[in-house]
Design a protein around this nucleic acid. Structure first.
Length: 270
DNA sequence: AATGCATGCGCAG
DNA sequence: TGCGCCTGCATTA
């Protein structure tokens, strides 16, 4: 499930498996069939990620722009001796001599031009995982906005790649009330949040999961039983509604914010 | 079998 | 602010 770290990891994974040689391209589900036929047999030259957008570069043909949305998934497997027959929900399948990749349920899977790709970069904010990122651009918007920092962090025009988990976790780690207005953040607080996102998300790419709990706060270190839940990482507040805070023991709260579930610890975050 | 829910986002009103 | 879209999984009946 996709926040920016997942997408950057997928770019890496595509590069490692497919770049440099011709790729068989099909759309078993049919919705991408025309473009798949056009791309079939073309070499993949590169893969790029910005926020939650993935771009697969096909030599002299264009880019496949993928956005997973909430439900989309990309899975890899071995193509030796042969890839398994695709199920009928596979929007896009890539195959070479060694690997296959199946895309299911994306919000977007479209063949686009260089210009269209650039337009997407232009409307996205800085991405903590991209070396060319300019955190100042985010600060310009945040420091002038009456919108809550919780909403601003989820706005891809402000910061690209942060989703509901990193949003909740980074605000907890910095002791910031999610309802505080962007303009009431200090420069120092923003700089610390940005630096922390870069570290946390890079770790997320490496491990392919989101972990945000410092070693000294891990359940084992605090004399508590290890976490039992299903989203794959060790976290302070995300999906921990009504459970005790790892640090103060108070109850983690949840609320609706812009149609998403917000989680925070009121005593720790002000 | 049916329902609900999810790490997202664009659109109408 | 609410709705629709894309899928798979866990939970409920």
């Amino acid at each position: 499930m996709p926040e920016g770290h997942t997408i950057h990891r997928l770019a890496d994974d595509h590069r490692a498996r497919f770049v440099g040689g011709p790729v068989r391209v099909t759309s078993p589900q049919g919705k991408f069939a025309d473009s798949a036929a056009l791309l079939d047999g073309t070499p993949l030259t590169t893969a790029d990620a910005h926020g939650k957008h993935l771009f697969l570069g096909f030599e002299d043909t264009g880019w496949v722009h993928i956005h997973l949305g909430l439900f989309g998934k990309l899975g890899f497997g071995s193509a030796t001796p042969a890839p398994p027959p695709p199920t009928d929900t596979v929007r896009l399948r890539l195959v070479n001599d060694d690997h296959y990749a199946d895309l299911r349920g994306p919000t977007t899977c479209a063949l686009i031009t260089d210009g269209e790709k650039q337009a997407i970069h232009d409307r996205l904010g800085p991405d903590p995982l991209r070396p060319d990122a300019a955190p100042d651009k985010a600060w310009q918007r945040i420091s002038r906005s009456r919108t809550t920092i919780a909403a601003l962090l989820m706005d891809q025009k402000v910061v690209a790649g942060v989703g509901n988990v990193y949003r909740a976790e980074v605000l907890f780690r910095h002791g910031i009330d999610p309802y505080r207005a962007g303009k009431d953040l200090t420069r120092r607080e923003w700089d610390a949040i940005w630096a922390d996102l870069a570290v946390l998300m890079r770790e997320g790419v490496r491990n392919n999961r989101i972990d945000t709990v410092r070693p000294e706060h891990m359940p084992e270190a605090m004399g508590r039983p290890p976490r039992v839940d299903d989203h794959g990482g060790e976290v302070y507040v995300y999906r921990r509604a009504n459970l005790p805070c790892h640090i103060c023991g108070g109850e983690i709260r949840t609320a609706d914010l812009a149609a998403r579930n917000l989680f925070w610890c009121p005593p720790c975050q002000s």
